[in-house]
Design a protein around this nucleic acid. Sequence first.
DNA 1: GACAATCGATTGGTCAGACCAAACGCCAGG
DNA 2: CCTGGCGTTTGGTCTGACCAATCGATTGTC
Lengths: 262, 262
Amino acid sequence: MVQAQTAAAGVVEHLRGRILSGSLQPGMSLPPERELASQLEVSRATLREGLSTLSQMGLLSIQPGRSGGAVVTTPPLTTVSASIALLFQTRAIRAGQLSEFRRALEVEAAQLAADRRTNRDLEEIAAALHAYASADDDARAQNVHGWAFHHAVARASGNPLLAETMSSLNDAFAECFEMLHATADPARQILALHRPILDAICDQDAAAARQAMLLHFDQLQAVLQSRGLTERPIGMQATTAPASPEVAGPVRRATAPLAGRG
Amino acid sequence: MVQAQTAAAGVVEHLRGRILSGSLQPGMSLPPERELASQLEVSRATLREGLSTLSQMGLLSIQPGRSGGAVVTTPPLTTVSASIALLFQTRAIRAGQLSEFRRALEVEAAQLAADRRTNRDLEEIAAALHAYASADDDARAQNVHGWAFHHAVARASGNPLLAETMSSLNDAFAECFEMLHATADPARQILALHRPILDAICDQDAAAARQAMLLHFDQLQAVLQSRGLTERPIGMQATTAPASPEVAGPVRRATAPLAGRG
DNA sequence: GACAATCGATTGGTCAGACCAAACGCCAGG
DNA sequence: CCTGGCGTTTGGTCTGACCAATCGATTGTC
């Protein structure tokens, strides 16, 4: 049995294993740090390093003062979007690559949606389309509803992997996608591209749905290419402007809510 | 200006800001922990918790014994795929859904690979295929080389998002995939499915590559369905077996080479 | 008896100082 | 020049302690 390189990594491995295996289920509480450290035969500092990592992965929720210890949670979708966002902040991912990735997921989703859509799915897709059409002048609302359309289609695929991955991408690149969509086509053209998708899914015509979604993305990529945006690196600017000096000062607050009446 | 809730989070925020803003660039070394802790006016334990988080995000590479401190790095693509994989592991995903997800990615990848493959890509794909063919009796080797084939195709797509996501899925569900492939077809049949993919990519015939890969997955899914494996959950399967003891044993290696003594 | 204020216990967050093991760098010796 | 050892540097871990926030029970009042 291969053990972790460090004790802290061992803690992560061990607890993650127990969570993923179902031995520790979401909602359950871990023992307090002192007790858990004793159980795992590591110091509390080492344990905390591991817990911190697990918390950052979204597997644990740690709150001070709680009676129990850390609470096992299900990682939120934001963990994926956060890592994607970080990735794009730190390296040059091109708009074309992102578009290709979306195409892979969404074309497949549309095809599956045609086969499996429930009436409720259909209603949601149609509602998004209508909302889009109704938001004549409001570019912002159009964007929201345009996205709702894609999400509804993805959900209708009945495959949460596809739907959630796409959702994560959206969260991560809301602004970027906004740019893509906004520059892609005028609203009428997007409507003309979305409507056939809805129709095909409504008719349960998988091939047509696939083709319609494919057309949508081909159109998008064509526009990107014509404007030379394919190679444009997308990166979100740093979320917080640091403006810090080269050598850091103190990291904590000046007037601490934590540094109370000690 | 909102500051971090905890000092450790403050460390993360501060250093991440400096990295994303370019003040700290990949390849540069941070000061040693003791010194950096002093600069940021936090204890070394707190600093370490922050560094650990940054390391887990892929922004830092920490190695013991180095002369300098932690090295600033560019997050690898695997961070994204790892979080996606974790997402899937913590939700009940069915084998059929996973197969669909793979199909979405790999069919697209095959299509792109046909357009973009370099000669080197081609060599790698061919090598994997030949290795598979040569591993007549060794099911284990066949599995490895079968995967290498798919990976090579994905890499040839020229889209790291597709390739890496697929890679990480493999890492996350190695056992499951093994099951899928192993039960899918006899080796000869897999060869018969892989070879047309290589041929199409070699000929730069995107449509044929897409079709060949699609056929491969349709075949796989047909087999899954025929054996009733489509609905088989993967990931957090053990929802009803809390048999393992609540209290855990030690986490570290048995031969504790690091056994500290205070 | 019900409700609110209070006090103590529990728990996470942080700190300080110490030791160990591995890697690095220097220098003597071949 | 290369190579081997040896001290230094650095990360990894431990112990024990203190603070602040929260929870829960106790207490006091209406």
